[in-house]
Design a protein around this nucleic acid. Structure first.
Lengths: 297, 297
DNA sequence: CAAGTTCATGATTAAAACTCATGATATCTT
DNA sequence: AAGATATCATGAGTTTTAATCATGAACTTG
């Protein structure tokens, strides 16, 4: 329900009013808007005449807001902000690019995604990615974010999900510990301290089950909150870690970590690219999706 | 974060664009806005040039929206709607009146409030009250309502509450049934059919407790959902009702109902006037609050 | 083929927005 | 007390924007 054209105030009047309300001064509003004080004075007076309601009280060349003015200023500000945001969004279609505000999981982001971003940037120089860290799912309508990387089940209301990869976890250990503990068979791991990660409490149990071994006699090693810490502890020889393989590609390549028993197991959960339905045609979102799915193929 | 004045499109351009998007036609948009087709054509073209993005595809004197145009139209429409609503709200301050959208409980509304509204209207002819029925608390930010009458505890997030009155309940019965059943003492009510109201299931138990009687031997009478029905059934001689006194003032005055045992009991809950914090200075809200608290004093 | 429809555009007019300068009045500093 | 500074209001004039009318080009329909 829009007001008829003749009953909607002009943008000039609305901007003059909103700035004056914020500054409680026509002169400072004029400075901000690069207009003359006289122009502001007239626009506000014209608006008050149109509405039939005083928006400011004038006392001795000073102004203060009326209750009507206060309420109106807030509402006008909100609407003007939305127009600005909408206009910037439209402009973002221009270069078929713009910015992509992406929420990432800390370890996946740093170990897998960010090292690959140069490739994306080379292929899409018009898109800038801003990274934010999010551990848990969130409401896209309440966050200034365009997309997210999510680990878990494909459940996220109002969003589109694309599966990126599963999670294959595998035991890794420093070579010196392998020699010290003479590890060559699965049952040898029952004699080794086993490092744990807090969000994967059943990883070791599942691994030993898969080898047909009873894990109850396994040695409990230190526990950590993040995979990055687990990997560091393993490199330091504190024990055997069980982690997603992609997270330790570097350490395996350099030899500071090795796979003592090459028996990976597959998690039932997976990594997903998620974005709100209404942002699916944003050029930046489309470009990133296409590139990311290629990387995971 | 408003765009600089020079980077925000004019209202003329935005309205021309939004109407064209809705009608998928410059000509029909022109008719709606009482402008010439040429003016619309130019404003849209000017907007596209400013943004650097095509908003419409032109094929053989026909237009269709681009993805950018579709998204922008929705956002512009929302912002324009907000400006319209804000402007109407501001105008509502003019007569220091306007309309008050009030949510009321059915029986309280019809039996107590509405009969008193003529007095309010006489004192405040500039305010029009629109009544809506609401049984349960609701979210003011999701309903087009300015205030509500609420029964219960003083709990309503984000709102201001003013206590109006408690609830005193009392047995009432038709005089003919009093004669027929020879009712003169509290225990005589154990021999009478007792009418029940669904939202006050413990009313009779509490009343007999207050008289030091065991209600277990009381005769179960018909049950009803609304107090208005309970009162009607009592007038018809179906049994003894226990209701808030103010709801049957009329029937008591006319003699169709009488109070057999004048032992009222007080409820711990009460009636409240509720309105959202941000609407407290609305002239209509202020006038109604002031008047209503006077009525309940 | 003729008539009707629709978006684009040239030339012109009307309306809105804005500036500069000044007036009136108040406060602050010396 | 005098002078400097600050602030909103307003007259007169200039610039910019919005809009109209008429026409062109191209398409559809009867």
């Amino acid at each position: 329900m829009n007001l008829p054209r003749s009953l909607l105030p002009s943008l000039s009047a609305l901007q003059a009013f909103e700035a004056s309300a914020r500054h409680v001064s026509f002169t400072r509003a004029a400075e901000e808007l690069n207009l003359s004080q006289g122009a502001i004075s007239r626009q506000v007076a014209s608006l008050e005449e149109m509405l039939g309601v005083p928006l400011f009280v004038r006392v001795r060349q000073r102004i203060s807001l009326t209750p009507a003015g206060t309420a109106y200023a807030e509402e006008v500000r909100d609407a003007l902000n939305r127009l600005s945001a909408a206009t910037l969004n439209a402009v973002a279609f221009k270069g078929a690019g713009g910015t992509l505000a992406l929420a990432i999981l800390p370890t996946f982001g740093t170990r897998w995604l960010i090292p690959r971003v140069p490739d994306f940037s080379q292929k899409h120089p018009e898109v800038t990615i801003n990274f934010s860290t999010r551990i848990l799912p969130f409401d896209f309508s309440r966050e200034p974010l365009d997309a997210a990387i999510h680990f878990g089940d494909p459940v996220w209301p109002g969003a589109v999900l694309h599966r990126l990869m599963g999670e294959t976890i595998i035991p890794v250990v420093s070579p010196t510990l392998v020699d010290r503990l003479q590890i060559s068979k699965p049952e040898d791991l029952l004699r080794a301290p086993l490092l744990k990660q807090a969000t994967r409490p059943r990883a070791w149990a599942e691994w030993f089950n898969a080898q047909g071994l009873d894990h109850k006699d396994a040695i409990q090693g230190p526990g950590f909150e993040q995979f990055a810490m687990v990997a560091k502890a393993a490199v330091a020889g504190l024990g055997v870690a069980i982690v997603p393989r992609f997270l330790v590609e570097e350490e395996l390549s350099s030899g500071v970590l090795t796979i003592p028993i090459n028996q990976p197991i597959e998690s039932e959960q997976a990594y997903w690219l998620v974005y709100p339905e209404e942002k699916k045609d944003r050029p930046a979102v489309r470009a990133f999706r296409s590139w990311l799915l290629d990387q995971c193929a």
